[in-house]
């Protein structure tokens, strides 16, 4: 059992190798092809969002990227190596936090599970867990509560803390803020943004919310109709500093947002779009 890779502190010599790369990734369930050839790559330290209309296959894509499913076509590379199963450097935050946390044990135990499972001693694991809980803005007392004793937003923070403590190379997030209210969503978006900047994380976030995608990312991957392909990858030149009110009221934000919205709307109303990668 190897200790989880330290994501942020790798030497720069590895900086050229993409953190995550999908090459002609496709997936079919029997005769139904859900994902066509998906091509994109994510650099170390990037924040990339994947958007697309409902039902396009975002969840399937995320399951393949996380190693839960082996894609039926194409290749997935993590840090340059072809993989087909869950990797030590990849962590996931699920949409439904209440179902991804174990209700029979404490928050602390939930966060330390991946660490203990990968060989860390309990004391060290708890130390890392407490640090992560503090990083996501939770009080130390939360550690001894049951997850269901917390509000939705706090539970999702616990899930994020669990991923953080794991020290992942890549953080995958599957519509992580879809199940919380709008105000909590803004807070959590800013939290993830801050953590990504502070820790130099590589984040891939799947969402249906275009505002969110543009606000958070360096690049936005827009998925097309069925079978799903990459319609386009849009750069988001909004700078490193982002603010919920300031950034969202700029002209550039509106432009990028409109472009992405157009891609998604086009994808929703038409069938398979021409695949392209930029």
């Amino acid at each position: 059992m190897t200790t989880p890779a330290t994501g942020a502190n790798r030497p720069e010599a590895d900086g050229d190798v993409p953190a995550l790369e999908a090459r002609a990734l496709g997936h079919s369930y029997g005769p139904r092809e859900i994902l066509g050839g998906i091509d994109f790559s994510i650099k170390r330290g990037e924040f990339v969002c994947i958007v697309g209309p409902s039902g396009v296959g975002k969840t399937t894509l995320l399951r393949c990227l996380s190693g839960l499913q082996k894609a039926t076509a194409g290749e997935l590379l993590v840090l340059g190596t072809v993989v087909d199963e869950p990797q030590p450097g990849v962590a996931v935050v699920f949409q439904d936090y209440s179902r991804s946390l174990m209700p029979w044990t404490s928050v602390l135990h939930n966060v330390t599970l991946p660490l203990r499972a990968n060989g860390l001693k309990t004391a060290e694991a708890e130390e890392r867990a407490r640090q992560a809980l503090a990083q996501v803005g939770l009080q130390p007392t939360v550690a001894d509560l049951y997850p269901w004793q917390l509000s939705g937003g706090m539970q999702q923070r616990v899930a994020i803390a669990r991923a953080l403590a794991y020290n992942p190379t890549v953080l995958l997030m599957d519509e992580p803020f879809a199940s919380v209210d709008a105000q909590t969503r803004s807070d959590l978006e800013d939290l993830v943004l801050r953590l990504q900047r502070e820790l130099g994380l590589t984040v891939l976030l799947v969402t249906h919310d275009i505002d969110e995608a543009v606000y958070l990312s360096d690049r936005v991957v827009a998925l097309s109709g069925s079978p799903a392909r990459v319609a386009d990858i849009v750069d988001v030149p909004l700078g490193t500093e982002r603010d919920q009110i300031e950034t969202k009221s700029t002209h550039e934000f509106a432009e990028v947002r409109a472009k992405v919205h157009g891609l998604v709307r086009h994808a929703a109303s038409s069938g398979p779009a021409a695949s392209s990668a930029s």
């Binding site: 996380s66 190693g67 839960l68 990849v90 996931v92 991804s100 599970l113 991946p114 499972a117 990968n118």
Partner: peptide
């Protein structure tokens, strides 16, 4: 799923 991803 969570357990598999975190290699439990």
């Amino acid at each position: 799923d969570m357990a598999r991803i975190f290699r439990v």
